[in-house]
Design a protein around this nucleic acid. Sequence first.
RNA 1: GCCCGGGUGGCGGAAUGGCAGACGCAACGGACUUAAAAUUCGUCGGGGAAACCUGUGCGGGUUCGACUCCCGCCCCGGGCACCA
Length: 823
Amino acid sequence: MDLNVNDYDFKKIEKKWQTFWEKNSIFKAEDFSKKKKFYCLVEFPYPSGDGLHVGHPRSYTALDIVARKRRMQGENVLFPMGFDSFGLPAENYAIKTGVHPSIITKKNMEKFVAQLKSLGFSFDWDRAFSTTDPEYYRWTQWIFLKFYEKGLAYKAKMPINWCLSCKTGLANEEIVDGCCERCGGDVEKREIEQWMLKITAYAEKLIEGLNGIDFLEKIKTQQINWIGRSEGAELDFEIDGMNEKIRVYTTRPDTLFGATYMVLSPEHRLVPKITAENNRNAVEEYCRKSLKISDLERTDLKKEKNGVFIGAYAINPVNGEKIPVWIADYVLTSYGSGAIMAVPSHDKRDFEFAEKFGLPIRCINCPDKASADAAGVSIEDILSGKTCWPGEGRLINSSNACGLDINGLSIADAKSKTIEWIEKNEIGKAKVNYKLRDWVFSRQRYWGEPIPMIKCPKCGWTPVPESDLPVLLPDVEKYQPAGNGESPLAAISEWVNAPCPKCGEPARRETDTMPNWAGSSWYFLRYVDPKNNKRFADMEKLKYWMPVDWYNGGMEHTTLHLLYSRFWNIFLHDCGLVPVSEPYAKRTSHGMLLGEGGEKMSKSRGNVINPDDVVNAYGADVFRVYEMFIGPFDQAASWDAKGIAGTDRFIRRIWKMITESEISDAVTTREQARILHSTLKKVSHDIESLDLNTAISQMMIFVNEFSGEGKIPRAAAEDFLKVLSPFAPHTAEELWSRLGNESPISLQPWPEYDEALTKADEVEILVQINGKPKLRFTAPAGSSKDALLKNALDNPEIKKSVEGKELLKTICVPDRLVNLVIK
RNA sequence: GCCCGGGUGGCGGAAUGGCAGACGCAACGGACUUAAAAUUCGUCGGGGAAACCUGUGCGGGUUCGACUCCCGCCCCGGGCACCA
């Protein structure tokens, strides 16, 4: 070690205090304590073979700071950690090496625990568990059975995304750019029997629930957009000369008079039925072709519209008009009813299609001149169908002989009047639609929770009785998926063959496992009571601890984990099994930690920072403070090796300030008191808003003030160490004990600040003339406006500037400035 | 295309509508040292000798006063994407 470096031996200090905290259970959360409870949660990691990523501690340190502060403020804090250990990487590793996933997972978890402990997080380790523990997944399976019991888990033959290389089904969410999220391989559509969870039944509650909770606005918006609620109408168009109807969903029932043709998706069930003989060849060929095109290509907006006329006509229910029926792949089978009424005059896609195929375009909604001008289109073009107008306007050409007249109305009024009319005439009804789809809950994989169902030839799907849970994963020889759509479990005949729980006849177990999102959908409930073997968690403990008061995690989980886990909790609440509907009272998000130069850290780029190396070189406290100082918490930040040296300097200056100064009993000077109390105030507030970078800046200002004097008042030193302790807990504990304190700093009360002392006695007042800074003078804080104004106007230099000019206006901001407006 | 963010020195970034650039990094200069490192003191948006001028992506506006509010653009990051 360098000779000149002071005796800041972080390795020794960190080890010492980590051992002390653990031995004395300093961070134990107490069930049913009289203190105010605070449940503070970070997303538990997948224990990958690469070990902890520097991104993990960004979130963990921030909430560790909050947890430590709240503890010092006298709250009973639950800050738990665990592992989300099912998943593909362990299984792929097993396929490659033949090592059982549980072995590699266990090894990885041990490494993670050691790494997390080395960073000094104040987790209550007694509550740790892994989603792969049979005692945990027993209850994951149990909850699945609840979904089944309530009719929310069902099996359906579904076109699913099939990863050709992983040989398994993927959820829509696991596909990135048309490829498998995990392996990047090609994905195609296949029809397979899948277990589904009916999350769509909770679409409304998932939107409504957002009202009462404190989530970042962008998180709420993203979830709302993902659920994609739209209001409109569902109505039937009869097919001319046939006893068939086409059902359509529209958000613009007001445009019914402008419907000039219809479009079915190529997969629509009516297509083979209603296609005219003359058109059959072309239609069949079009359908064949569109099935081959991947979803990605099909939904490419830039692709030119195409389609074919099927030789049938529908009757527009509002005006009896015969309109042609086409098929086109721009209509999706998976949304609405898979069929649309096309209104080319007021829908861009329909317009594009109609133009290409020469279909009629009839304007029925005209904007006022101002809106048309603003959009850069002419009213003549809109009226003559030369252009499309999707915006607001007044209805025209929209009345019939059967009592519907919406001419002159706005879109909103026309909508409600039309819906009223179609409901009265039993043509259709108001309808709410969602983009959200049900959740494909089956994986044809080994390393996941077995789905606890048995298929009996006589009784059909039968749930495994509660008393037989957990359905344990059996040992297998080969982890490779069968490749025929079955999981490797299907090959274990002694496991697969089981008697039917209902009739006792030979039956077969479900061989699909759950997706890796299953275990993380309820883990926050288990932390409350992790060792319970009678129930997933004791109701009284749930009542005490739930909801989670503060949950921090990545934005990438907004529409997956965060939505799924809300769904599970709301469902369990509806079943009367958990006390609160919304699991998380508050959700914040951290920005990504990028490599040097702003690129994503990855092995291939060679820019991965290993937290162990940083802890070895600088210590956990420097690492923690650096990650918090790197930039605004919610924004992406790039790692900077030089920046960490500055944080190292800061911690060492603190060390020096305490160990090399005379600790005096003197009181602080007025200016020192101002800086001390400003620091106590700013750090207290900034922790709650996660403005941790500015909290650290303020502590640096404190150190700049109190260093180099050779002495420091004890009270100031102690209060400073207290607010430092959540950030740099080891250093703070050590210095605190060196000041002669016996009880650990982690258990000290959080220091209070005096608002009056945060302000200076004297302030500098700026004098402006016409908004331009002219000069400054000092005045006692809190001086009256009149006094300040007088002071400014009495100044000879100002007098000179104002002389001979007309003083139009004076603005006086107490403690800040005087502005003189002259002419 | 739509929905969120964001754009401030060489860099990371600060600023309830009130002195733009806090705090840190880098750089430069001085002290200490035989020397270097470490430490420490100082300088540090641009132009100008100076008074002063200018400056927060671009163009307008509101205001005594705008990084901050409003209108119209441009660029970057993230999410969704033919959702009827």
